[in-house]
Structures are given as structure tokens and as C-alpha cells.
Design a protein around this nucleic acid. Sequence first.
DNA 1: AAGTACCG
DNA 2: TAGC
Length: 202
Amino acid sequence: MLVLPKGVRHIPGHLDRDEQTSLVEDIRAVVRQAPLYRPEMPRTGKPLSVRMTNCGTLGWVSDKAGYRYQDSHPVSGAPWPPVPNRLKALWADLTGESRPPQACLINYYDVSARMGLHQDRDESDFSAPVLSVSLGDACLFRIGGTERGQPTRSFRLESGDVVILGGESRLAFHGVDRIYPMTSTLLKDGGRINLTLRRVDS
DNA sequence: AAGTACCG
DNA sequence: TAGC
């Protein structure tokens, strides 16, 4: 049986199909205003396999200069669109945070995309949890401890699942090993969307 | 640096 | 795993 690290909550099937469909419509509206782009690795400029955009007052970006939060889209220069209300409600329901999310990173994985093991540590305040929503094709998600080299576990995330990293797992290393193609009909063109909601500042 | 080449 |  799978035992998750302390502070990790996996809620399989938290969102029903109608809620997932509505969320995808919300995200499509965001992406029309703030198109997906391909981020690059710091220093090397090597493109990541995922495409990204954001909504919220701040968005996470990566380019040759480094990782950071900024208030505008790196290609268009426009401010990020607001976080959709149903995502703000989900955040309030599941995190118990009185403060709204400041950043919602939208990652699109095509069937060949992956995400290496990493920590979410570009925020200046780690007191709020990180809330993650999976939509579309399933993936193999991996999570370990707060230091590289600690043991990791992997499990499958399905469309509608929510994962919350809080407490002693707020800084847990995590990543996406693979996407399972054709495992969901939610997205017409396949692939997986992950939404990551965060506080950035206190 | 959220990637990846390489090794056992 | 480990140097980048």
C-alpha cells in the first residue's frame, strides 16, 4: 500500500466531470488572454518540455535569467488574467487559507512532456500550502522528501484529482515522470493540464 | 534552477 | 546519481 509523505494530501476524484469541464472552459479563457509559451532553463536557455502560462497577480516564469515571479506575460507583456472564481473557491475550501491565491501556474503537458524532480521554492512565504489540480490525461507523479536523495514514491494522478503540499511537505521534491496518452476525453487534443495555486508573499 | 546523460 |  502506498504511504504518502506527511503533509501530502492526494484527493482522488475531487472534481466531478462537470466541474472539470467548467474549469477547462475557465482555463481556455485565460489562455486566450495569456497564450501558452515555452519556458527556458536558467543559464542554458534549454526549453522545458511543458508549455506554460499563468493567471493571478503574479506568475512564475523561467528563462535564461532564472526563475522568478513577475506580474506580466513574458511574451506579450500584458498583466496576467485574474484567477477564475471557481479556482479561488477551491483554494478556500481545501487550504483553509483566508488569503486568496496570488499565483496560478498553468502547465500543459503534451504526451511526451515531463517535469524533473524539483521544489516549489521561489516564493518568499512558505506558510500556505501549494494546491495542484490535474485535468485531462493521467500522469505518473513522483514525490520525495525535502532534500534530494531522499526516497521517492510515484503514483498515478487522474483528471479531477487534487494534490496539496503543505506543512512539512511544502518543500517536498516532486515531478512528473510520464503522461499516459488517451486516458481522458476531457481535452479534445489530449495531453494534461496542471494548475498550481500558490501564495508568493506574506 | 523545473533537464538530462550516464551508470549499475 | 550528480555535475551543470
